[in-house]
Design a protein around this nucleic acid. Structure first.
Lengths: 186, 186
DNA sequence: CAAATTCTACTTATTAGTAAGTATATTTGC
DNA sequence: GCAAATATACTTACTAATAAGTAGAATTTG
């Protein structure tokens, strides 16, 4: 794959996660890369195309992480911590996650991007639900509600916390993520 | 206050909460109201102006709700339920809340709107923290973490749940809000 | 050479915003 | 009491800037 193409994908993702989908243009990317806006159109004919590719790349990245954790025989706690660490890193880099960034603009996205975003969210929630269910069965996690509700509640907290942390300054993200763990301890 | 002005504020808020700040234009509002875009500029010289006014209106609405709950001598549970009901209603109306809509676009907002949005979030968090603290002291709420963390976690959940509920269809919002209450029961 | 890549030079559409004018009330000065 | 001034609530008719997107020429690379 072309290095320019990869740079466009990376820059596009960063722009979405820092400014939002409807606040970035091909010009932003081309200026940063020192090329002309037509060159971006060569790789991604339309913005719809770019947006969809960025979401697909993220789904792929998630699948790779899950595969990696499996092959390294991570237990439930290690898997959960790896997942939460994605958000801790995003917070440190002052970026939102893709779901939190594209979520509010969902209705303004074209259909293919909507479908991919939905797929991404459902994939993450399914993985988290399964992890919680398994952990509850093996008694390494303890929580009263059903795993699907708990997964939704954890995921929601992570997504929104990134949004708030970008606005409210004195936010202790470490203790925030700790409270997620504490809440699951038997 | 002019009725047109109020209609603009209402329509603007709806547009932000359904499509996002950077995805709506003065044309969207003027077309809907059957007037010209210049008429919107008459009331709100700039989009910055409109955005700030919408946030201020929301802060005011929140303050009125708090005052109202006080004057009616609502206990801690009644106050919490009133607050959560705002989000249940938003979910029913398929709208995000203002914080969840403007949050991801924060960096693209002009400074005055940023300041107001920040003020709004801090005001809500302060109110919720105080409520939780008081409830914990009076032993009507029970939770291990400190009130500020708990307030952040509840608020985050509410904000993000609205975003996800607009995308993932089969979301049981009733049981989601119930889990917030269950989590605080002594 | 030829395919891949990038640029020049556009187009079309939309955006926020403005300048100047108009009809209709409302207020003020005499 | 009534004309003149002024304020309200718009419209018409723009501008300047930026957006996505395109056709085709030029350049680079294998």
């Amino acid at each position: 794959m072309s290095v320019t193409r990869e740079k466009i994908l990376e820059l596009g993702e960063n722009l979405i996660r820092t400014r939002g989908y409807n606040a970035f243009s091909y010009q932003d990317i081309s200026t940063e890369l020192g090329i002309k806006n037509a060159a971006i159109h060569y790789y991604f004919p339309s913005k719809e195309n770019l947006g969809t590719s960025i979401v697909r790349t993220n789904i792929q990245r998630f699948e790779e992480m899950v595969d990696n954790m499996h092959s390294r025989h991570f237990d439930e706690w290690q898997q959960l911590e790896s997942f939460v660490k994605i958000y801790v890193r995003s917070h440190r880099e002052q970026k939102k996650c893709l779901v939190g960034s594209l979520g509010p603009d969902y209705r303004t996205l074209n259909e293919t991007t909507q479908v991919e975003l939905k797929r991404m969210i459902e994939r993450i929630l399914k993985w988290l639900t399964d992890l919680l269910e398994q952990g509850k069965a093996r008694k390494v996690f303890a929580f009263p509600d059903d795993p699907a509700s708990k997964a939704l509640s954890i995921f929601s907290s992570l997504v929104a916390s990134l949004q708030l942390s970008g606005i409210v300054d004195k936010m202790d993200y470490k203790s925030f993520s700790q409270s997620i763990y504490d809440d699951l301890k038997p």
